[in-house]
Protein backbone atom coordinates (compact mmCIF):
# COMPACT_ATOMS: atom_id res chain seq x y z
CA UNK A 1 0.00 0.00 0.00
CA UNK A 2 2.62 2.49 1.11
CA UNK A 3 4.90 1.24 -1.63
CA UNK A 4 2.22 1.88 -4.28
CA UNK A 5 1.65 5.39 -2.92
CA UNK A 6 5.31 6.32 -2.89
CA UNK A 7 5.85 4.98 -6.45
CA UNK A 8 2.75 6.88 -7.54
CA UNK A 9 3.90 10.13 -5.97
CA UNK A 10 7.40 9.75 -7.40
CA UNK A 11 6.03 8.96 -10.88
CA UNK A 12 3.53 11.81 -10.82
CA UNK A 13 6.24 14.17 -9.58
CA UNK A 14 8.49 13.18 -12.46
CA UNK A 15 5.74 13.71 -15.05
CA UNK A 16 4.77 17.12 -13.66
CA UNK A 17 8.39 18.12 -13.37
CA UNK A 18 9.08 17.03 -16.97
CA UNK A 19 6.10 19.04 -18.23
CA UNK A 20 7.24 22.12 -16.38
CA UNK A 21 10.99 22.15 -16.75
CA UNK A 22 13.09 19.52 -18.49
CA UNK A 23 16.40 20.85 -17.21
CA UNK A 24 15.36 20.51 -13.59
CA UNK A 25 13.96 17.05 -14.26
CA UNK A 26 17.24 15.94 -15.80
CA UNK A 27 19.00 17.25 -12.72
CA UNK A 28 16.65 15.22 -10.53
CA UNK A 29 17.23 12.05 -12.56
CA UNK A 30 20.98 12.55 -12.42
CA UNK A 31 20.70 12.88 -8.66
CA UNK A 32 18.73 9.62 -8.61
CA UNK A 33 21.25 7.77 -10.77
CA UNK A 34 24.27 8.96 -8.79
CA UNK A 35 22.69 8.22 -5.42
CA UNK A 36 21.34 4.81 -6.44
CA UNK A 37 24.64 3.64 -7.89
CA UNK A 38 26.55 4.73 -4.81
CA UNK A 39 24.02 3.27 -2.36
CA UNK A 40 23.00 -0.04 -3.93
CA UNK A 41 26.28 -1.97 -3.53
CA UNK A 42 26.61 -1.07 0.17
CA UNK A 43 23.00 -1.99 0.84
CA UNK A 44 23.33 -5.33 -0.92
CA UNK A 45 26.43 -6.01 1.20
CA UNK A 46 24.47 -5.11 4.35
CA UNK A 47 21.58 -7.37 3.34
CA UNK A 48 23.98 -10.22 2.64
CA UNK A 49 25.53 -9.78 6.09
CA UNK A 50 22.12 -9.79 7.77
CA UNK A 51 21.34 -13.01 5.93
CA UNK A 52 24.50 -14.56 7.37
CA UNK A 53 23.91 -13.33 10.91
CA UNK A 54 20.29 -14.42 11.02
CA UNK A 55 21.16 -17.82 9.58
CA UNK A 56 24.01 -18.61 11.94
CA UNK A 57 22.88 -16.77 15.05
CA UNK A 58 19.17 -17.46 15.43
CA UNK A 59 17.32 -14.84 17.45
CA UNK A 60 15.78 -17.63 19.52
CA UNK A 61 19.23 -18.60 20.73
CA UNK A 62 20.29 -15.10 21.73
CA UNK A 63 17.02 -14.04 23.29
CA UNK A 64 16.92 -17.38 25.09
CA UNK A 65 20.26 -16.54 26.68
CA UNK A 66 18.90 -13.39 28.27
CA UNK A 67 16.39 -14.78 30.69
CA UNK A 68 15.45 -13.29 34.02
CA UNK A 69 18.61 -14.51 35.69
CA UNK A 70 21.04 -13.02 33.21
CA UNK A 71 21.00 -9.69 35.07
CA UNK A 72 22.59 -6.51 33.79
CA UNK A 73 24.89 -8.41 31.44
CA UNK A 74 21.80 -9.94 29.84
CA UNK A 75 20.41 -6.47 29.23
CA UNK A 76 23.68 -5.34 27.64
CA UNK A 77 23.87 -8.46 25.46
CA UNK A 78 20.28 -7.86 24.33
CA UNK A 79 21.15 -4.24 23.47
CA UNK A 80 24.24 -5.30 21.50
CA UNK A 81 22.27 -7.93 19.62
CA UNK A 82 19.56 -5.38 18.80
CA UNK A 83 22.21 -2.96 17.53
CA UNK A 84 23.68 -5.49 15.12
CA UNK A 85 20.70 -7.18 13.55
CA UNK A 86 18.06 -5.59 11.37
CA UNK A 87 14.80 -7.46 11.83
CA UNK A 88 11.48 -6.12 10.61
CA UNK A 89 9.08 -5.22 13.42
CA UNK A 90 6.53 -7.81 12.31
CA UNK A 91 9.03 -10.54 13.18
CA UNK A 92 10.75 -8.88 16.14
CA UNK A 93 7.67 -8.01 18.21
CA UNK A 94 6.05 -11.49 18.20
CA UNK A 95 9.45 -12.99 18.98
CA UNK A 96 10.02 -10.55 21.85
CA UNK A 97 6.50 -11.26 23.13
CA UNK A 98 7.08 -15.01 23.18
CA UNK A 99 10.25 -14.50 25.22
CA UNK A 100 8.52 -12.18 27.65
CA UNK A 101 5.92 -14.89 28.22
CA UNK A 102 8.69 -17.41 28.82
CA UNK A 103 10.05 -15.21 31.58
CA UNK A 104 12.70 -13.09 29.86
CA UNK A 105 13.79 -9.91 31.64
CA UNK A 106 11.53 -7.01 30.60
CA UNK A 107 14.58 -4.70 30.64
CA UNK A 108 16.40 -6.95 28.19
CA UNK A 109 13.40 -7.03 25.86
CA UNK A 110 13.02 -3.23 26.04
CA UNK A 111 16.75 -2.77 25.35
CA UNK A 112 16.59 -5.18 22.42
CA UNK A 113 13.57 -3.54 20.80
CA UNK A 114 14.94 -0.03 21.30
CA UNK A 115 18.43 -0.64 19.92
CA UNK A 116 16.91 -2.73 17.14
CA UNK A 117 15.22 0.35 15.73
CA UNK A 118 17.57 3.14 16.81
CA UNK A 119 21.08 1.72 16.47
CA UNK A 120 22.31 0.27 13.19
CA UNK A 121 25.83 -1.09 13.44
CA UNK A 122 25.63 -2.59 9.95
CA UNK A 123 24.47 0.65 8.38
CA UNK A 124 27.21 2.73 10.05
CA UNK A 125 29.45 2.76 6.93
CA UNK A 126 26.47 3.92 4.86
CA UNK A 127 25.46 6.57 7.40
CA UNK A 128 29.05 7.86 7.42
CA UNK A 129 28.90 8.40 3.66
CA UNK A 130 26.08 10.87 4.23
CA UNK A 131 26.78 12.48 7.57
CA UNK A 132 30.44 11.85 8.31
CA UNK A 133 32.23 9.71 10.85
CA UNK A 134 31.75 11.97 13.86
CA UNK A 135 27.98 12.42 13.53
CA UNK A 136 27.40 8.73 12.77
CA UNK A 137 29.46 7.30 15.62
CA UNK A 138 28.00 9.79 18.09
CA UNK A 139 24.41 9.22 16.98
CA UNK A 140 24.72 5.46 17.27
CA UNK A 141 26.63 5.40 20.55
CA UNK A 142 24.38 7.97 22.27
CA UNK A 143 21.34 6.06 21.00
CA UNK A 144 22.80 2.87 22.46
CA UNK A 145 23.26 4.48 25.88
CA UNK A 146 19.78 6.00 25.75
CA UNK A 147 18.32 2.58 24.89
CA UNK A 148 19.91 1.19 28.06
CA UNK A 149 18.51 4.11 30.08
CA UNK A 150 15.04 3.50 28.62
CA UNK A 151 15.35 -0.21 29.39
CA UNK A 152 16.27 0.34 33.05
CA UNK A 153 13.54 2.95 33.59
CA UNK A 154 11.03 0.53 32.07
CA UNK A 155 12.32 -2.22 34.33
CA UNK A 156 11.61 -0.02 37.36
CA UNK A 157 8.15 1.06 36.21
CA UNK A 158 6.89 -2.31 34.97
CA UNK A 159 8.33 -4.38 37.79
Amino acid sequence: MFIAVIWGVAGLGLVLSWAKNRGNTRKALQFFRRAFLSLAPSIVAIIWTIGFILTFLPSEFVLGAIGRNAGIMGVVIAAVFGSIVLIPAFIAFPLAASFLRQGADVRAIAAFVTTLVMVGALTVPLEMKFFGRRFTLLRNSISFVMALVIAFVMGEVLR
Binding site: I6, A10, G13, A28, L39
Partner: peptide, 25 residues
Amino acid sequence: VSKDYLLEMLCILPPVLILCGLFDA
Protein backbone atom coordinates in the same frame (compact mmCIF):
# COMPACT_ATOMS: atom_id res chain seq x y z
CA VAL B 1 16.62 -14.62 4.57
CA SER B 2 18.13 -11.95 2.30
CA LYS B 3 15.40 -12.17 -0.34
CA ASP B 4 12.80 -10.13 1.56
CA TYR B 5 15.34 -7.43 2.39
CA LEU B 6 16.42 -7.18 -1.25
CA LEU B 7 12.81 -6.88 -2.36
CA GLU B 8 12.23 -4.18 0.23
CA MET B 9 15.24 -2.26 -1.03
CA LEU B 10 14.12 -2.47 -4.67
CA CYS B 11 10.60 -1.36 -3.72
CA ILE B 12 11.50 1.59 -1.55
CA LEU B 13 14.87 2.98 -2.55
CA PRO B 14 14.18 4.06 -6.18
CA PRO B 15 11.06 6.16 -5.47
CA VAL B 16 12.68 7.68 -2.37
CA LEU B 17 15.73 8.71 -4.37
CA ILE B 18 13.58 10.07 -7.21
CA LEU B 19 11.68 12.19 -4.70
CA CYS B 20 15.00 13.35 -3.21
CA GLY B 21 16.17 14.30 -6.70
CA LEU B 22 12.97 16.25 -7.39
CA PHE B 23 13.23 17.90 -3.97
CA ASP B 24 16.82 18.82 -4.73
CA ALA B 25 15.94 20.30 -8.12
